[in-house]
């Protein structure tokens, strides 16, 4: 194990400046990007998720850790592109059409990224056509759909139907979540999975990847 304790602590404590500096120091010392991600950042975000589940961390702490992780990724991403290294699983995420709420989606995206997945965040108010185009272009393994409003929940079904019509539905697993969404609704619209919480969504993605 070649963990950078400094990077691990910086992500855990949500300190973006220290995360950036620790990453820079580790790169200069010859540690590879994938090693830093798998040995330091993923364990740190796992611990962040555990603390969130235990109600010792809350949304501010999650966002700070996500930001710290992103500041490290800014240094690592160009190195990965240059060396041809890739994260093994790509996840597309977005809040469905008509819905501008993004904090839940951001939390899931941040925790997915911190868990070593490549995340393509399409933002909010994302049309079914945009999801289809992204699936065709980026070839993700998983698509995550978020909705906060009961009135925008039907856009989840519209999006799944659009993936079906475009002939790409079987290429991806579709997960749904958001305050009004239930397991029953997820089944009704033909989603492959549902989670009530951000950390549950990460566990679900891992479960799908492990079973793939």
């Amino acid at each position: 194990m070649t963990q950078s304790k400094e990077l691990y602590d910086a992500v855990l404590n949500g300190d973006a400046r220290k995360a950036h500096a620790a990453t820079q120091a580790a790169i200069e010392a010859g540690t590879g990007p994938m090693t830093l991600i798998t040995e330091s950042m993923v364990p740190a975000m796992d611990e962040v998720g555990r603390l969130f589940e235990a109600e010792e961390y809350f949304v501010p702490e999650l966002l700070l850790s996500g930001r710290a992780m992103k500041s490290a990724m800014e240094l690592l991403r160009p190195l990965m592109v240059a060396s041809g290294e890739k994260l093994s699983v790509r996840v597309v995420i977005g809040t469905v059409k008509g819905d501008l709420h993004d904090i839940g989606k951001n939390l899931v995206a941040s925790m997915l990224e911190g868990s070593g997945f490549e995340v393509v965040d399409l933002g909010t108010d994302v049309s079914p056509e945009k999801f289809v185009a992204t699936v065709e272009e980026q070839k993700p393994h998983i698509v995550c759909l978020s909705a906060l409003l009961t009135v925008t929940m039907p856009a989840m079904k519209t999006t799944i139907d659009a993936l079906e019509t475009a002939g790409v539905r079987t290429r991806v697993k579709v997960l749904v979540g958001g305050a009004p969404v239930t397991m029953q609704y997820a089944k009704e619209i033909g989603a492959d999975g549902y989670s009530e919480t951000a950390s549950g969504a990460i566990a679900l993605v891992r479960q799908i990847v492990a079973g793939a």
């Binding site: 949500g14 949304v59 501010p60 966002l63 700070l64 930001r67 993004d102 904090i103």
Partner: peptide
């Protein structure tokens, strides 16, 4: 902005 506020606390 809710995300900004959450980080402003720190």
């Amino acid at each position: 902005g809710i995300s900004r506020l959450m980080m402003d606390f720190s």
